[in-house]
């Protein structure tokens, strides 16, 4: 797979894995309304994944469509960042993951909506409206839980503490990013960091929460070096297509 296809694949994998994770809340959220909120976000992410994986398959031009890429790759072939595969934990931990990732996605798609390659720009422009809402939704919950009861605050702090070490990976640039920028499709993610920090800090201040201490970042997702959690997620997500290839109903 060439660099541009890989670039689309990474975007698709991020959305796909987060969508699958959020889908695990279906029927289990703290309230019916929250159940719908989380699964709405999940469906938005799956929609983005469909577009980006479809684009990756089209650029690769080897006969693989979005379904083939989603359901017929093994764990080492997934290129999503480590943040999105982290377990849901409690509701606050899920919100912490969404908060960090949605603000990143909003900044990323703001820029990508303006790139020269119309295929990437079009998907980003559509997704930007979705992820802007996700960022607001997650931020509101961070404030509500952080500035809530003693227990909700402790859970929010613990959730952010779990997710924080995976945030740096979002902004790491490599050869694939450079090639995508050269091709008029990519975004300089390292340039998004300052604004991301500002947005995150503003919400944390509102939530009366301290910014988690910097820790050694955990990297490797883009190269297929995943946590143990991703394999379990895939065994669920891919079961049907592995047990009954090409099944339709």
């Amino acid at each position: 797979m060439d660099a541009l296809a890989t670039y689309a694949l990474r975007l698709g994998d991020d959305s796909l894995i987060l969508g699958q994770r959020l889908g695990e809340w279906c029927g289990h959220a703290p309230a019916l309304e929250v159940d719908l909120s989380l699964t709405n976000v999940a469906l938005d992410q799956v929609g983005q994944a469909t577009h980006f994986l479809g684009l990756a398959g089209a650029i690769e031009n080897a006969g693989r469509d979005a379904d083939a890429l989603a359901f017929r790759r093994d764990v080492m072939d997934f290129t999503n960042c480590l943040l999105v595969e982290q377990p849901n934990g409690d509701f606050a931990q899920t919100i912490a993951r969404q908060f960090l990732f949605s603000h990143y996605q909003a900044l990323l798609f703001e820029q990508m909506a303006r790139v020269k390659d119309e295929r990437f720009a079009a998907i980003a422009a559509k997704a930007l409206k979705e992820v802007s809402y996700h960022a607001t939704l997650a931020s509101d919950w961070v404030v509500r839980l952080g500035d809530g009861t003693e227990e909700s605050k402790a859970r929010m702090v613990a959730g952010l503490d779990w997710m924080w070490r995976f945030a740096d990976e979002l902004f790491v640039m490599d050869d694939v990013d450079a090639a995508a920028i050269a091709a008029g499709a990519g975004v300089d993610k390292s340039a998004l960091r300052a604004e991301w920090d500002a947005r995150i800090d503003a919400v944390l201040a509102d939530a009366t929460l301290a910014r988690p201490a910097s820790r050694r970042p955990v990297l490797g997702g883009r190269a297929g070096h995943h946590s143990e959690h991703l394999g379990h997620l895939l065994s669920d997500m891919q079961f049907l297509q592995r047990a009954y290839p090409d099944a339709t109903w």
Partner: peptide, 14 residues
């Protein structure tokens, strides 16, 4: 159901 007005709007939307 919602704890505050903002949550109520988000729940209504979702």
């Amino acid at each position: 159901h919602a704890a505050d007005a903002k949550m109520a709007l988000e729940h209504a939307r979702d």
